[in-house]
């Protein structure tokens, strides 16, 4: 083995330093991207999930005060909640939104009904709102959900 020329030694050292620098730069940039994007992807997924749960709840049927099956949307649009409505809403949203706190409210003119948690906590709360027109008025269905810690 001969003596490695100074030029070659400098080149190998430069290559080694550059690889170390690139490895550290990759780690830093990837961890930065992961940190920034980590907040975006789950919020989109949770938002989609809450919209889907709200749609499914509104289309599900429950017996009205006369014992006839009616969708939850129509029930609040035409009359008001009957016996067993609160139990229905609670059991459906507990099933569809596991590990989440929720509050579901309906507003029709001066009437207002609310189910679920009494208070909405501070922090990230995802809200899904459906509006349905009826006789010049508007019925607003609002589902607010948040992750339970």
């Amino acid at each position: 083995m001969g003596v490695v020329p100074l030029k070659d030694r400098l080149g190998i050292a430069g290559l080694f330093d550059a690889l170390i620098f690139l490895a550290v730069a990759s780690l830093v940039s990837v961890s930065l991207i992961a940190t920034l994007s980590a907040h975006v992807a789950p919020v989109e997924a949770v938002n989609e999930r809450i919209e889907a749960a709200h749609t499914v709840l509104l289309r599900s049927t429950v017996n009205d005060s006369r014992g006839n099956p009616s969708t939850v949307e129509e029930l609040f649009k035409l009359r008001g909640p009957g016996d067993g409505c609160e139990e229905h809403v609670t059991s459906v949203l507990d099933l569809l939104l596991p590990r989440s706190g929720w509050r579901w409210s309906v507003e029709r003119g001066e009437h207002r009904w609310a189910f679920g948690s009494k208070q909405v906590p501070n922090g990230d709360v995802i809200c899904s709102i459906f509006r349905a027109p009826i006789d010049g008025q508007e019925v607003t269905y609002r589902l607010e959900a948040w992750p339970l810690r």
Binding site: V56, L57, S60, T61, V92, L96
Partner: peptide
């Protein structure tokens, strides 16, 4: 899992996972 509605006999629609 995904939330879905189930169409049953008699026109009833239930919520399901």
């Amino acid at each position: 899992s995904e939330p879905v509605n189930i169409l049953e006999r008699g026109g009833t629609v239930s919520a399901s996972l």
